[in-house]
Design a protein around this nucleic acid. Sequence first.
DNA 1: TAATATTTTTAGGTAAGTCTAAAAATTATT
DNA 2: AATAATTTTTAGACTTACCTAAAAATATTA
Lengths: 219, 219
Amino acid sequence: MAISFAEENYLKIIFRLSESTKEDISTNAIAELTQNKAASVTDMLRKMSEKGWVNYQKYQGVRLSSLGEKLALDIVRKHRLWEVFLVKKMGFNWDEVHEIAEQLEHIESEELIDKLDAFLDYPRSDPHGDPIPNKDGILPQLGYVSLANMPIGKAGNLVGVAQDSAVFLQLLTKLNLRLGATLEIIEINAFDLSVSLRIDNNPPVLISHEVAKNVLVKR
Amino acid sequence: MAISFAEENYLKIIFRLSESTKEDISTNAIAELTQNKAASVTDMLRKMSEKGWVNYQKYQGVRLSSLGEKLALDIVRKHRLWEVFLVKKMGFNWDEVHEIAEQLEHIESEELIDKLDAFLDYPRSDPHGDPIPNKDGILPQLGYVSLANMPIGKAGNLVGVAQDSAVFLQLLTKLNLRLGATLEIIEINAFDLSVSLRIDNNPPVLISHEVAKNVLVKR
DNA sequence: TAATATTTTTAGGTAAGTCTAAAAATTATT
DNA sequence: AATAATTTTTAGACTTACCTAAAAATATTA
Ligand SMILES: [Mn+2]
Ligand SMILES: [Mn+2]
Ligand SMILES: [Mn+2]
Ligand SMILES: [Mn+2]
């Protein structure tokens, strides 16, 4: 039996939640991202647990098993490679590709993905700066930090984003925050943690903490 | 409500059956191609009829409505464009692409398909010689006939095939029957309708009527 | 044209994946 | 530690897309 779209989406979302915490992942967190109700998530977790993709204890949250993580990395690999294809070969903007990649990531053909990888010249990161796992599920170490954690006065380059919703990416574009831009934090306002930021030697502009958190920088 | 994979497959299959006959399409014919049981087909025909995609009378077979035909042509367009992509850009052989295109044809993004069309330089036919509908569902007239209907002694070029199963395409490759090859019928054997065929000025070889029927030739 | 064979539909079920409402477990607050 | 709030699970339903078995309609043959 092949893995279903629903199952692949759950795997991918649990993986994403696991990246930002070492705690067990809660039913509600998954429900929010899958856009399902908590009851449906419980159902699916039970099934995935039976298949050996997750370690799940009632009321105690869930973690991917090593098999589940391998499966998730494979989906992430496909998603990110397709995003590169859409931007580099099809001429989409970086804020237009996520939804289409959500569909393309479910195409089942190892041979196709390997050929696509070669066709794109083995990219290490997707249009949002996210690392692309290789065939064996190894993520390249790109070595970046959140802009919100950068020390004041040190310059770095924008290498990625921590989310790829269209509204966020469009805001970045409006703010002139493009992949590769040189960023220097001038000041952090204690009141709302908003950041005064110099972009490419232009006069400083103000961005919210929310934006800063989601911008990734390499020094 | 978006159209489901199952619905898209039914539309495509009814369309394919309609191409070769002006009769109404039978439940059993659809069942065979969808690999479902006749009872399931009846179920789906009722649903599709309610949606206005087909004209269906119990026991009398089914035809696509003009809306249904438009939807089917859109799926066929996607299928064939993806096949071109897989062969021309990804380096697959013509006998390897059908199954992958069966998946890719369900990707929903008009913008993607238009960009893909441009990226491929607006091909008029797919790797099997089948015409690719344009955005408006118009099929280009490629003007070919079945090799089985070619007169003896007249030469023509192989421009397509009437089916794209992998076994058939592999046999063609083995027989040296490639897209573009020059073909001349030397003799038709009355006993089994097998055809003695000259390919590109080589010594004649024998092919079955079954093969000849499925090879398309332009004079 | 009557009997027989074939095709198609109906009736009743199943599995996947979702939902709502209610119950149970866990966590936070007094 | 008892109570309240929150989270999670269970119970029971629904929809889609299938299935098998039996009934009904149509087509074929004698
Ligand atoms: Mn994405
Ligand atoms: Mn991305
Ligand atoms: Mn095909
Ligand atoms: Mn084809």
